[in-house]
Amino acid sequence: MYRQIRAFFNTRGYLEVDTPVLMPATSTDVHIGSLEVSCALRRLFLQTSPEYAMKRLLAAGSGSIFQIGHAFRQDEQGRLHNPEFSLLEWYREGYDYQQLMDEMELLIISLSLRQCNFSRITYRQLFRQSLGLVIDDISLTQLRTECSRRIPGCEPQDLDFDQCLDLLLAMVIAPEMRGYQFVCDYPLSQAALARVSGNDASVAERFELFFDGVELANGFSELTDASQQRARFESDNLVRAQKGLPQHDIDEFLLAALDHGLEDCAGVALGLDRLLMVLLNLDSIDQVLTFRA
């Protein structure tokens, strides 16, 4: 699989890069925990993805790049999770997220031994089609009622709007998904590092790829505006403070890089353990890891 992936990107004009796993800054994402390492009296973090470093390379003029590496996330362990996992991450200059999805389809077809069927649906359509919910019109109270009605033993009183959506997506919608399905145009509250859509200012140009409901990849038309990015990091840290989670220093190197200028590009991270797992028709990540943490 690695040989085929490298061949795919090499013939398409990408440069393979290798960025550090251990860095002084880390993701402020509220739902992603970083593993800390103390080293020569400094606090360093095992990277939760190579995103910040790769964007710094892009801003420095690297051109389109890809990387195969390991990423680490605290407290993620289960049938589909291991705290250390393999990521294939790539950035294509001049592409938007739709073009990147096209390229991803080609990659997966080249890796798959079987016929692949891809479909695309917006986050909004997905909720309407699967649950009959119009997420733009629904109140938090109604959404919580949906959670308790559809999910056994769920107490959604203290869940916020996005947590309710996460819960319904993970436990009700995803198990019913079949084949390769791109979900795109996420609500702005889940934009992460994605650009706000040019056509609809209420959604972000973010997509995820699922296979039979297993989440494989997450990608964006990248946000290149340093001040918007800083505002999102700061708001993440505010939410972290409210939840009693550690706040993380904002990666000033990344913001300086964005400030210097990042060309329009799209990027995506694809979980290779899970991809291999679904390509081989297996149902647990354990079955493809060499050794488990």
């Binding site: 739902h31 407290d75 049938r79 999770h81 033993g153 869940l159 947590q163 436990m171 889940q190 989440e215």
Partner: peptide
Amino acid sequence: NEFVKPGKGQAFNRV
């Protein structure tokens, strides 16, 4: 016990 988590979302344990 099953750990369920959207990549960028809230994690849950279905027990």
